[in-house]
Design a binder for these strands. Structure first.
Length: 275
DNA sequence: CAGTTCGCCTGGGGGC
DNA sequence: TGCCCCCAGGCGAACT
């Protein structure tokens, strides 16, 4: 599932494609369920005739900046993908195909239909939107500090695993990087959030950044069907220490890794190493 | 109000 | 080989 490093990889890839002067010509919908604040008709009216200027990231959100300051905001959720294809190429589960006047198309592909797409008249409207406004710090934001985290954590009694997935605190951590970060920090996913020390807050930030940087260098983690482009997958799964390794020996102490559900999320951890 | 559970959705993997 | 069941999970809504 795309988390911060996978979204960053995708955006980096897209920004290296050459569609920035091409005009959007027509849109074909297979399914419009991902459109949240527009209809097929208003979406078509909004984007047709525009060009894409650049693509940026906020947490797990992908931001398409169009001509005339228009914005398309995409969240891939679990299985969403964005492909840049020749007109005669086909992805597996296309939902929206955006045809450009250069013989190619941008395809939003999503087998589970969980993704979301919103449109905004300008960047400020995007920043004022409920889903963006409530986001916390991004992983590499300089203002993400131990003190900030400690302050967010101090009144929380829920398990730290749940808190790390809370996008209003750190925007971009998902299930894989939450488990990996806690393992590196030697913190049990069951630990009550307000029992995490200031020192451990710094550890969480450092380890989270380290894993995410390494993941981005490896073009993300491929589990299930993640691809950042058609037939291009990441390879960070090779370096995962706990996620997907249930019942395998801990790479630090050798004891068997446990798997459980915390707030409905699969969680793999080492009972011995993580306190 | 904080914390937890539910439901959205469907391909694919496991069991038989 | 085919069929059934159920799991995967981000996040908003509903619930406790």
């Amino acid at each position: 599932m795309p988390e911060f490093p996978e979204v960053a990889t995708l955006i980096n890839w897209l920004n290296h494609q050459n569609f920035f002067d091409a005009k959007i010509k027509k849109i074909i919908f297979v399914d419009d369920i991902v459109l949240k604040n527009s209809t097929k008709k208003s979406f078509i009216n909004f984007v047709c005739g525009e060009t894409i200027k650049k693509i940026s990231q906020i947490g797990k959100f992908i931001i398409f900046h169009l001509s005339n300051n228009k914005i398309i905001e995409i969240h891939l959720r679990l299985e969403g993908k964005i492909f840049y294809l020749l007109n005669n190429e086909k992805s597996k589960f296309p939902m929206i195909e955006i045809y450009l006047d250069n013989g190619k198309k941008i395809v939003y592909d999503d087998s589970r239909k969980f993704g979301t797409i919103n449109i905004y008249n300008n960047y400020q409207d995007l920043l004022n939107s409920t889903e963006i406004k409530k986001l916390g710090k991004q992983p590499f934001d300089k203002t993400l500090t131990a003190n900030y985290l400690f302050n967010c954590f101090k009144n929380k009694t829920q398990k730290i695993k749940t808190t790390l997935l809370d996008q209003t605190i750190i925007a971009g951590i998902g299930n894989i990087y939450a488990d990996e970060t806690l393992f590196l920090c030697k913190i049990s996913p069951f630990r009550q959030t307000n029992k995490v020390s200031l020192k451990e807050c710094q550890l969480i930030i450092d380890n989270c950044r380290e894993i995410m940087s390494k993941s981005i260098r490896n073009k993300g983690t491929t589990v299930f069907s993640y691809q950042y482009a058609l037939n291009h997958s990441g390879s960070f799964q090779k370096y995962l220490k706990v996620y997907g390794r249930k019942n395998l020996p801990c790479l630090r102490c050798g004891s068997i890794l446990y798997w459980t559900k915390i707030n409905g999320r699969g969680t793999t951890y080492c009972k011995k190493c993580q306190k």
